[in-house]
Design a protein around this nucleic acid. Structure first.
Length: 282
DNA sequence: CCTGAAACCTGTCTGC
DNA sequence: TGCAGACAGGTTTCAG
């Protein structure tokens, strides 16, 4: 699931309630269960239980691709990686019996009101941290793309103060927090920049257009509640609006040229060879 | 500093 | 039907 718009969608549903799930704000943890040990990065399971049971949730936020749950004296952070999902569901059936964990549930927080929060993650790449200070985990993240403090001038400086291929650079969370493979490809296409263009060669005008493009595709993703692909479906429909991602061979919506797929930094990359011309070698 | 490859995992799809 | 291989929204670590 998870790039910035998908994580934002999940965080909002947890905070405000979703279509068929209630908000978790105010709920109190009565029990915690960990089914896959490596899912919990820190602390160890017994300490985790001791520290989180009895605490209630004050707020839910997002930073980059992290979901942040603020408890009274703790922060519980989740990174969904490739296949993670967080949902609120019933913990007890009508007779008051515990409903068994679902397939691929890795961590469950039971609440005192009969509901539970389930972290479900098919591929087991997702991670959770319980920390006093979230900065120990989030400290290295780059700026939020939608933060107004990130001006075109600042962004231009960020781009030209390193020498990196554009695609991997946009995926680097230390550079900018929240972009993933879908939105990076879509933003580069909208900005008409080749994914292998060197960041040091970018003009201030191109930087400005790119920032605008990044914000545009992210806002569109959030508006559509993210993209739903494969077995993970949360009602988002941005997948029906991809211009280049997973569109190899289909005509570019701008010029009609077949979209190409190449691999950069081990990630599949989709672009229009005409709209996003190959940079000249320097 | 920068790039590429491997590793961590399970599931789906394609082609032979 | 079976089986091998490619591929999937991400990140870390290591080699060159």
């Amino acid at each position: 699931m998870p790039e910035l718009p998908e994580v934002e969608t999940i965080a909002r549903a947890l905070r405000d309630g979703g279509r068929d799930e209630p908000s978790i704000i105010g709920k109190t943890v009565s029990e915690a269960r960990v089914y896959w040990k490596r899912t919990l990065s820190e602390p160890r399971v017994p300490v985790f239980k001791k520290r989180i049971i009895g605490q209630s949730i004050k707020d839910v936020k997002r930073r980059g691709k992290f979901v942040i749950m603020h408890f009274h004296s703790e922060y519980l952070l989740f990174h969904l990686r490739m296949s993670g999902d967080l949902k609120v569901e019933a913990n007890l059936d009508e007779q008051g019996h515990k409903i068994p964990a679902q397939k691929h549930d890795r961590l469950i927080l039971e609440f005192s009101d009969g509901m539970r929060l389930a972290f479900n993650d098919t591929r087991k790449f997702g991670r959770a941290w319980l920390v006093k200070d979230p900065q120990t985990i989030l400290g290295d993240l780059g700026p939020e793309p939608l933060d107004p403090a990130l001006t075109p001038e600042v962004f231009y400086k960020m781009l030209t103060s390193c020498s990196r291929q554009m695609k991997p650079l946009l995926l680097d969370q230390k550079f900018l927090a929240g972009l993933g493979n879908i939105y990076a490809d879509e933003a580069l296409h909208l900005a008409k920049l080749h994914p292998m263009l060197n960041s040091i060669d970018i003009s201030s005008e191109q930087a400005k257009v790119l920032l605008k493009s990044i914000r545009s595709v992210l806002r569109e993703g959030i508006k559509r509640n993210g993209a739903s692909i494969d077995w993970v479906y949360r009602g988002g429909d941005f997948q029906n609006h991809f211009q280049v991602y997973q569109c190899m061979g289909e005509p570019c919506p701008v010029c009609g040229t077949p979209i190409q797929r190449i691999v950069i930094g081990q990630r599949s990359t989709h672009f229009c060879p005409v709209c996003q011309p190959e940079p000249k070698k320097s």
